[in-house]
Amino acid sequence: MIQLHHLHFGYNRKKALFSDLSLELEPGNIYGLLGQNGAGKTTLLKIIMGLLFPDSGQCEVFGHPAPSRHPGMLQEVYIIPEEFQLPAISIREYVKIHGIFYPRFDHGQFEQHLQEFRLNGGDKLSALSYGQKKKFLLAFGLATNSRLLILDEPTNGLDIPSKSQFRRIMAASITPERAFLISTHQVRDLESLIDPVIILDKGNIIFHQKTDEITKKLAFRVVREEEAEKDLLYAEDLVNGKAAITRNKGHQESQIDLELLFNGVISQSQAINSEFNPGAVF
């Protein structure tokens, strides 16, 4: 579906952001792209969308090189960026002039999402709040039925009920034919939704695993201060102990603490990755 091979990209010639980055995305998944500020998450999304061109390497999206921005490719990908500006027209007018570019745009589905988000077709887009605009774009993006929906920080600006509504709608909308790629800092908002987890650091993908693999290999638990853990991979201080990632020797499934996993991978990438690929050099 999406293939990135040996990608090189930099905003200036002296400093490369991505050097030899490779990634494949398959349908049926809700990919979570995590990373610190400046790790290159938004840049990667823009490269997949054909909005930025790699310096070298390949980025193929549904059989088309992404920089070609081929209509056949663009109708299969929809992006909801973190920062956007919508025109001063009504929702209905917007859908009329944009929906027609997407051959599988479903007006019924759009109306249904609009109702769920408590938006009205007659509402003027420029008069909506940031969160409402985001909900509108989400409803539109889902209704395009594009095979890849890219979301950059989708829960930013959403209130608490809207975040759970967002998770519910996203979980209900995934099909074996389509994939969602979600870039976020708000790991707690999307903990229950994303699978697989991709962690980007300093322009490299340092972790890419499915959640069932993660729970099979790693255990997330609270250990006491004095508890000597020979299987400890990473730990963070808590008030009454330590939040720890350990080797899952007992093969008991635990709930993934995505924030802990992220921090662990960033600081102990080699130790954690070696659990998934024994003998591999990182």
């Binding site: 823009k46 969308m49 054909g50 921005r69 663009l74 992006i79 956007f84 500006q85």
Partner: peptide, 18 residues
């Protein structure tokens, strides 16, 4: 010329020629 709008225009399913 506006980063908040350009993504929408460039990602609209139509070729550059169109």
């Amino acid at each position: 010329h506006s980063p908040e709008k350009s993504y929408q225009y460039l990602s609209l399913p139509a070729s550059t020629l169109e």
